[in-house]
Design a protein around this nucleic acid. Structure first.
Length: 278
DNA sequence: GTGATATGCGGAT
DNA sequence: TCCGCCTATCACT
């Protein structure tokens, strides 16, 4: 499930399985029947991630088709390869879209968005996103334009996709912990150098997330000293310092991790480690 | 079986 | 700031 690293990894998986091949498309659940009919028999060209948005390009009869997928909170895209002459299994659960090619198949479940876009709509989508730490052509400057003028807490700004694209609740909590930043620090009180450090650590953490397929912030070139306590390992599979570790001792100082609701999302932080006066 | 929960986001209030 | 949506999973009864 989906912060930006998941989507970038899925894009790479899709390319590995489908690139330059013809796909069969269906909507076993029936809620994307028109779209799957349009995609049936198209050739897969490319898949790209922009923050948490996945864009798959197809060509059919000299026309370009752009499929936009956003997984939202519970969406899942399962990409699997198939051996030669092996067929895909029967779909299980609510499959919005199934793509089948000679090399494998992909099942999309529970997305917030699954739609065909025209080029103008895709441009508009990308234009409203901030820089993505996982896209090489992006850098932190555009985000700083917003952050340096905002009274909102840095914890809120990091979740805004028009400020930074691809950061979710886990990376937000973890990057602030790793740099010892009080999550309630207003953006405009953050030092320029501190914002650059946040961006650089997001690049490190999220690239690592793409590589290993999970969020693992404790073993990733971490900054704070670790004690002997076991980090949290949950079904996300990774090891984290503070995310969903409410009331458990901080891995660094032992202080209980705190949780608060902020902009309708859970925020986790260590009140002792994260008090840096920016 | 039931209910709570979730890495998200857009639209109404 | 709140609500609704989409779905699977896990801890309960």
């Amino acid at each position: 499930m989906p912060e930006g690293h998941t989507i970038h990894r899925l894009a790479a998986d899709l390319v590995a399985v489908f690139a330059d091949r013809t796909v069969r498309a269906s909507s076993p659940q029936g809620r994307f029947s028109d779209g799957s009919a349009a995609l049936e028999g198209a050739r897969f060209i490319d898949a790209q991630a922009y923050g948490k948005h996945l864009v798959i390009t197809f060509a059919r009869a000299r026309r370009t088709l752009l499929l936009h997928v956003h997984l939202g909170l519970y969406g899942d895209l399962a990409v699997s390869s198939l051996k030669p002459r092996e067929g895909p299994p029967e779909p299980w659960g609510q499959v919005r879209l199934r793509l089948v090619g000679a090399g494998g198949f992909a099942d999309l479940r529970g997305p917030t968005a699954c739609e065909l876009l025209d080029p103008g709509q895709l441009d508009a989508l990308i234009a409203r996103l901030g820089p993505d730490p996982l896209r090489l052509e992006d850098d932190e400057r555009r985000a700083w334009q917003v952050i340096s003028r905002s009274a909102s807490p840095i914890a809120v700004l990091l979740m805004r996709q028009d400020v930074v694209a691809g950061v979710g609740n886990v990376y937000r909590a973890e990057v602030l912990f790793r740099l010892g930043i009080d999550p309630w620090t207003p953006g405009r009180e953050l030092a320029r150098t501190m914002w650059r450090r946040i961006w650089r650590d997001l690049v490190t953490l999220m690239a690592q997330g793409v590589d290993v397929g999970r969020i693992d912030t404790v073993r990733t070139k971490h900054l704070p000293e670790r004690t002997g306590r076991a980090p949290r390992r949950d079904r996300h599979g990774g090891e984290v310092y503070v995310y969903r570790r409410e009331a458990q001792p901080c891995l660094v100082c032992g202080e209980p991790i705190r949780r608060a609701e902020l902009a309708a999302r859970n925020l986790f932080w260590c009140p002792a480690c994260q008090s840096r006066p920016h």
